[in-house]
Design a protein around this nucleic acid. Structure first.
Length: 454
DNA sequence: TCTGGGGTCCTAGGACCC
DNA sequence: TCTGGGGTCCTAGGACCC
């Protein structure tokens, strides 16, 4: 917690719905609901006009329609949301280099890095009013709610206090007094399950939370959350504003109008989703080692299965093959309402290639610099000159003397064509007992490095 | 005919290594 | 013959956020 109110939290009001009302004047002043419009859709954002009828985020669209039948129900235009968000984030970055976006419609701004004469309450208040005006200008009329306080935690709570179109500056020294009467659910990270556990322990307000010893809290809700709650209940929060947080996973999922029962249809969906994940990874220059499959059953029980490759991939066929393998191990009788594919454990080959290039620049010998594995697979021959390494991979020759790379783990064998003469090809993976593995061949040298589909 | 989609973080148990 | 810890990686599930 700082001794000045120097962290700003900005939240665009009813963002998706507001963009729709901006772009379609006939919707202004009327209830607008953005979200899934199908039979299994849920509300993403409701305009304030719709909220008056009790429509809320995360409510099923079915229930929203029952409460507010005359609202406009829209499925959302994410390109418009993204570009509007980019305009706001650009404005914030013009004000301080330290901007941490939390989503399309929210960000923290560190005012210590902004060009302000001082951080007195009057100064930051005037600054925030000016900022809100400029948000309206760059977005074509959207309003934002802003909170400013001595920590991220209090700034976020403050921005919520006078929504919509509000500003609250928490005077340093008043944080605990503001916080203590509030319900524990104002604390980010305290959702329905934690509220219930705390309630059973007789804890409802932040004040009551602050009276519980840390050890007791840890017993109630676990180590990490218990420690965090103990601090936040005292308004203790020293978290920095962190720009440029790295992506940790990429995923695509879909809920289907009617439960799926046909395995071949499920496989086709998983393959399509793998392709979409791969497309997005390539667009972002990402590559990852762990492929996950998510399956939500007819009764809403959710299963996940994952497998980790020896080296990162962004190849659609590899992700698809692995996802299908994971699907094959699941009993989907009864029906499936949701399928999803994701990749995590992200790294990027761009960086590895950079290291390889640096090695060459330094006049390093052809020998790779990374440590060789302790044991070579029995098929292994001499390592191709200049081949680069990935963790857990061995370089071997195929029967034609051409170099390729393989790795294996947890029943999955990974093959990736790579020599001194050719750029790395995409990673292909097979279940270890899949005969297709033994039919696989690296591409002929005159190919473009893309192994043919078997 | 309840209950999205895209994420992050945490926990717990087992394997494996030293 | 019995019995260590600690650290890391991986997997599955769950809570939570917008």
């Amino acid at each position: 917690m700082r001794d000045r109110a120097s962290i700003l939290h900005l939240d665009l009001d009813a963002f998706f719905a507001a963009v729709e009302q901006r772009d379609k004047p006939s919707l202004r002043g009327k209830p607008v609901v953005v979200g899934g419009t199908g039979g299994r859709g849920v509300v993403s954002t409701a305009s304030y006009e719709a909220r008056r009828f009790g429509v809320r985020s995360a409510m099923s669209t079915r229930e929203a329609r029952a409460r507010c039948p005359h609202a406009a129900y829209l499925s959302g235009r994410f390109e418009a949301y993204r570009s509007t968000s980019a305009a706001v984030m650009g404005l914030l970055r013009s004000v301080s280099p330290l901007v941490e976006p939390l989503s399309l419609d929210e960000a923290f701004v560190d005012l210590e890095q902004a060009d302000l004469p001082d951080l007195e309450v009057a100064t930051v208040t005037a600054f925030a009013e000016d900022l809100r005006t400029r948000v309206r200008e760059v977005t074509g009329g959207l309003t934002a709610s802003v909170g400013i306080a001595s920590s991220k935690f209090l700034a976020k709570i403050a921005s919520d206090l006078r929504k919509p179109d509000g500003l609250v500056v928490v005077e340093p020294g008043t944080e605990v007094a503001l916080l203590h009467p509030m319900h524990v659910s104002v604390i980010p990270g305290v959702g329905p399950a934690t509220v219930e556990r705390l309630k059973r322990a007789g804890i409802h307000t932040v004040r009551e939370l602050a009276q519980v010893g840390e050890d007791e809290l840890v017993r109630q809700v676990g180590r990490s959350l218990g420690h965090g709650l103990h601090q936040l209940a005292r308004a203790e929060d020293d978290r920095a504003v962190v720009p440029d947080r790295e992506t940790k996973s990429v995923s695509v999922e879909g809920t289907y109008e009617h439960d799926l029962t046909d395995r071949r249809q499920m496989e086709a969906i998983v393959v399509r989703q793998a392709g979409e994940v791969a497309r997005r990874m390539r667009a972002s220059g990402l590559s990852g080692r762990t492929v996950s499959l998510k399956v939500r059953m007819y009764d809403f029980t959710t299963l996940s299965r994952s497998a980790t490759l020896p080296a990162p991939t962004e190849d659609a066929a590899t992700i698809a093959r692995l996802a299908r393998t994971l699907l094959a191990d699941l009993d989907t009788s009864g029906g499936v309402r949701l399928l999803g594919v994701g990749v995590s454990g992200l790294a990027d080959w761009v960086q590895e290639d950079l290291f390889a290039a640096l090695d060459e620049d330094e006049g390093a010998e052809d020998e790779p610099t990374a440590a060789p594995p302790a044991e070579q697979p029995e098929e292994a021959g001499a390592r191709p000159r200049g081949a680069t390494w990935a963790p857990g991979m061995d370089v071997v020759h195929d029967e034609h003397g051409r170099g390729w790379v393989w790795g294996s783990g947890r029943g999955v064998v990974t093959v990736r064509f790579e020599t001194a003469e050719t750029p790395p090809g995409p990673v292909r993976s097979f279940p270890a007992d899949d005969p297709a593995l033994h039919r696989w061949h690296p591409p002929a040298p005159q190919d473009d490095g893309q192994p043919a589909e078997q």
